[in-house]
């Protein structure tokens, strides 16, 4: 009985949570709805809010922006940045742009894959890390670079990966 009780509470807590996020999304939509090229910023912000882009959010955005769902999906599918799958608490993006690539980005990526035991696009079983690749976030002078959530880590060496990831593994570590 206690189990079902606690799950009931859990649901009640979750529902208003999502409602609040949709209300935030509404404000964003109000600003971008009629702006030309407004879809991409809306999707970026929505992904920030929800952690990823679930189907109901995408359909909501399509309806509110008066755009075909097929087009919204087409834009989401075009950019690696967007994810339609729930992701871990921390999203690691390894830059494989030209500068990072030639300065060892690939080795950095290999080291992270090995450390976490996941491939690109996957999430660790404990839901702490998701791994993605990116094409240049404008930190070429500091190559090879990776981003973990909004933190940029510069001149990353494969040997230092464990050390870089460690703070994010702590249970109390919140997203920056």
């Amino acid at each position: 009985m206690s189990n079902s009780d606690s799950s009931g509470i859990c649901c009640c807590e979750k529902e208003p949570d999502k409602k609040a996020l949709f209300m935030e999304l509404d404000e964003v939509l109000l600003e971008y709805r009629t702006k030309k090229g407004g879809l991409i910023p809306v999707l970026q912000i929505a992904q920030g809010l929800f952690g990823y882009l679930p189907e109901d959010v995408l359909r909501y955005i399509a309806t509110k922006m008066d755009k075909p769902y097929s087009e919204v999906a087409g834009v989401v599918g075009f950019y690696l940045f967007f994810s339609t799958q729930p992701r871990g608490k921390n999203v690691i993006r390894v830059c494989l742009g030209t500068a990072c690539y030639v300065r060892g980005g690939k080795q950095v990526l290999a080291a992270i894959k090995k450390e976490l035991g996941i491939d690109v696009g996957e999430t660790t079983e404990d839901k702490v890390f998701s791994l993605e690749v990116a094409r240049c976030f404008g930190a070429c002078g500091l190559a090879p670079a990776i981003m973990i959530n909004d933190d940029v880590h510069q001149r990353v060496k494969p040997a230092r990966i464990k050390q870089i990831l460690a703070p994010y593994c702590e249970p109390e570590m919140e997203n920056a």
């Binding site: 075909p68 097929s70 087009e71 087409g74 075009f78």
Partner: peptide, 8 residues
């Protein structure tokens, strides 16, 4: 609008 390019 059933059809649109998907992916890249």
């Amino acid at each position: 609008s059933a059809l649109f390019p998907q992916g890249r």
